[in-house]
């Protein structure tokens, strides 16, 4: 009985909580692909998917079944274990980060003290899936894509780190729930607007989204690092990439848009429960991801590096100093 109470019941609860996060997340990923195709279609005066199911709503599942039914191809020159581990790693990393994201007050799987650092660590590991895939494929296109992506993701992580430090200075805690609670009076997107913009652009680069999608630049590298992947191994990369987009949007919502908090704490707004606000904010940021993709051409590689190291890094470093200075000068340090 004690064994049941001490080990089995808590494990079962944790597994149930994990499922409660992962299943909606995967549905969200499926419908993000649909959302993306519809939004970009609307921006380009097309109709987008409209054949499978009403309004094309079953299109993501049709795509999923198609990918499952295809043959998994292992290139003969590939390093088999690393080749198969890379998509798994990408997918796992995109899921485990959700453990610390707070959906409402107290509604979080692991409310750890170093939540922001955990998120930062997990997002900095995303590069391994890409670099391992590129190397193990034993193909020059995949390898070039992986090298580009390694340099790109490491560069933009630096400015993301400084942006996070600025937010932390205003909060005085590394716990994500504390960060959201600190935004009760004003969302950090308003006082830290430049940092918000830098974070969003760096998030685009970190998730390899257009206009920074050089690692998969189809016009010169075919499909970049996952050119040799097919069927489910490709689908795992795809799922991981879109789950990462949702994760970065979630991070933006937590750090700058007040997480689960309503925009105004008055009657019609605070009737809506916190998780719905959080989902709406994520959807809002995701719309920007798609909007950018439909609008901007791809960056050239040297311009990408220039933006990261010569523009964002000095600017975010300056803002860390300015924020710290203002906080100390007005005695606002939390």
């Amino acid at each position: 009985m004690t064994f049941l109470d001490t080990y089995v019941v808590p494990t079962a609860i944790i597994v149930a909580q994990i499922l409660a996060i992962v299943v909606p997340l995967l549905v969200a990923v499926a419908y993000l692909t649909y959302f993306e195709r519809k939004v970009i279609a609307a921006m380009q005066l097309r109709k987008g998917p409209n054949v499978v199911g009403p309004f094309g709503l079953l299109q993501p599942f049709a795509d999923g079944v198609k990918l499952l039914a295809k043959e998994t191809i292992l290139p003969s020159g590939a390093n088999k274990i690393v080749f198969l581990a890379a998509p798994m790693l990408t997918f796992i990393l995109s899921l485990i980060a959700w453990a610390v994201i707070p959906f409402d007050a107290g509604m979080v799987l692991a409310d750890i003290n170093v939540g922001v650092l955990y998120l930062f660590a997990i997002s900095s590991l995303g590069v391994y899936g890409v670099i391992m895939a590129g190397w193990a494929s034993n193909s020059k296109y995949a390898f070039l894509g992986a090298l580009r992506s390694a340099a790109q993701m490491v560069s933009y992580e630096v400015s993301i780190g400084f942006v996070i430090i600025t937010v932390l200075l205003c909060v005085g805690s590394l716990n994500l729930s504390d960060i959201v609670e600190a935004q009760r009076t004003v969302w950090f997107a308003i006082p830290l607007l430049p940092m918000f913009v830098i974070f969003f652009v760096s998030a685009l680069a970190e998730t390899n989204r257009s206009p920074f999608d050089l690692p998969e630049g189809e016009s010169e590298l075919v499909a970049g690092y996952f050119v040799e992947y097919s069927s489910m191994s490709f689908a795992l990369f795809f799922l991981g990439e879109y789950a990462n987009m949702i994760l970065m949007s979630g991070m933006t919502a937590v750090l700058f848009l007040g997480g689960w908090l309503p925009p105004f704490d008055i009657a019609p707004f605070n009737w809506i429960p916190g998780p719905i606000w959080f989902a709406l904010k994520i959807a809002f940021v995701l719309f920007f991801f798609l909007w950018v993709r439909a609008t901007f051409p791809r960056y050239r590689y040297d311009q990408l590096m220039r933006l990261g190291w010569k523009v964002f890094l000095p600017l975010s470093l300056l803002w860390v100093v300015v924020t710290a200075g203002v906080l100390v000068a007005f005695d606002w340090v939390p």
Partner: peptide
């Protein structure tokens, strides 16, 4: 936990990538 996260961020996330 702070040291653990810093270890992952600095060594795994940056040094080992390079």
């Amino acid at each position: 936990e702070f040291l653990a996260m810093i270890l992952v961020v600095v060594y795994v996330g940056a040094v080992a990538v390079l």
